[in-house]
């Protein structure tokens, strides 16, 4: 696979380049000004994954900013993936945030377009979209490789990021999706995290094409997976969450499970099955587990899918040059 020189030296990058099956998980920052809330959520995830993605106002709903939450994670010795979207910031803010993120010790960045403001609870907001995800990727790459801003002005120290992008093989135009991925790789993506997969045959077709055009040798692909809590959640996601495709069979399976507890268990079982099928698809380098506000469930899924223990190599906060307050170590002990 894509061995080679480390560009950022993050744990996620090392796991992927060493050829091991990577596991990342998603953390939604809290609606709170209390860092404890971030640590609490991270504590469950950190033991079971190689890196924690921190969402940037997912579904256009405000939470603690992703950079701040990532910085808290870095302080505590965890490995975050900063999700950064084009929805709320123009290119000036984005470049500044990238520099700031690197200074705070963040080494992985996932460049996204972002859900539209209309998906959230404040649809009155102005949508920015000064850049799109591919332009954002290329811009981060230019900052890293050429050491300049988009204007050509020189940076004193370039930000060293392991750059990621998203892909959604589960929505139209299906035939173009592999080529769009190729475009993201050309723009600078080194790893990809896909949208939630509930349709394995569709993913298989996508990955076949991806391997066909040789992309699996140039980029690490982590497939998005997640447990569905109930039929109600599934219906809600289908209706309200942009870009989610859940086949009828899956909803039917959940419905047959009956009680709330039964549905939760069945949802978990489906997720574990999907992980096991996805693992064997050529070109898949890992999974990205997402479960909105049910972090404990993520841990269970990863354990039951047989993905533990993780090859942990904790990066102590001092190694990335971040001096956090001492009591942060106490707040969120790192469990290797």
């Amino acid at each position: 696979m894509t061995e080679g020189k480390l560009v950022a030296g993050s744990r996620l990058e090392r796991v992927l380049r060493s050829g091991r099956f990577a596991v990342t998980a998603e953390l939604n920052p809290p609606d709170s000004a209390d860092p404890e809330a971030v640590y609490e959520r991270a504590l469950v995830l950190a033991e079971v994954c190689d890196a924690i993605n921190v969402t940037d106002a997912a579904s256009a709903r405000v939470h603690m900013s992703s950079i701040a939450a990532c910085a808290l994670l870095v302080r505590a010795g965890y490995e975050p993936v900063l999700q950064i979207t084009c929805r709320d910031r123009n290119r000036i803010a984005l470049q500044g945030d990238l520099l700031g993120a690197a200074a705070l010790g963040i080494r992985n960045v996932l460049c996204l377009t972002g859900d539209d403001v209309g998906a959230g609870d404040q649809p009155q907001a102005k949508r920015v979209f000064d850049l799109d995800s591919i332009q954002l990727l290329r811009m981060a790459r230019i900052m890293r490789e050429k050491g300049v801003f988009l204007s050509g002005r020189r940076l004193d120290v370039a930000p060293k990021f392991f750059l990621g992008a998203a892909a959604n093989p589960f929505v139209p135009p299906y035939e173009w999706r592999p080529y769009r991925l190729a475009k993201k790789v050309a723009a600078g993506a080194e790893f990809i995290q896909t949208q939630l997969c509930f349709d394995v045959p569709r993913l298989r077709a996508f990955m076949a094409k991806v391997c066909d055009i040789g992309l699996h040798e140039r980029v690490f692909i982590l497939v998005g997976v997640g447990p569905l809590k109930s039929v109600k959640t599934a219906e809600y996601m289908r209706r309200r969450v942009p870009g989610i495709h859940i086949p009828d069979e899956i909803v039917e399976r959940l419905r047959k499970a009956g009680s709330a507890r039964g549905q939760r268990e069945e949802g978990k079982r489906i997720c574990v099955e999907i992980i096991q099928q996805v693992k064997d698809i050529p070109g898949v380098a890992g999974v990205h587990v997402m479960a909105y506000a049910q972090e404990e469930l993520v841990a269970e899924v990863i354990e039951e899918a047989g993905l533990l223990p993780r090859p942990h190599r904790p990066t102590p906060p001092s190694a990335v040059g971040v001096k956090g307050p001492k009591d942060n170590q106490k707040l969120a002990p790192y469990v290797p």
């Binding site: 995800s133 959604n168 139209p172």
Partner: peptide
């Protein structure tokens, strides 16, 4: 979204 480089991931079925 004024995207210049292709569709976002939110396209409906």
């Amino acid at each position: 979204k004024n995207l210049r480089n292709g569709p976002c991931g939110g396209v409906r079925a």
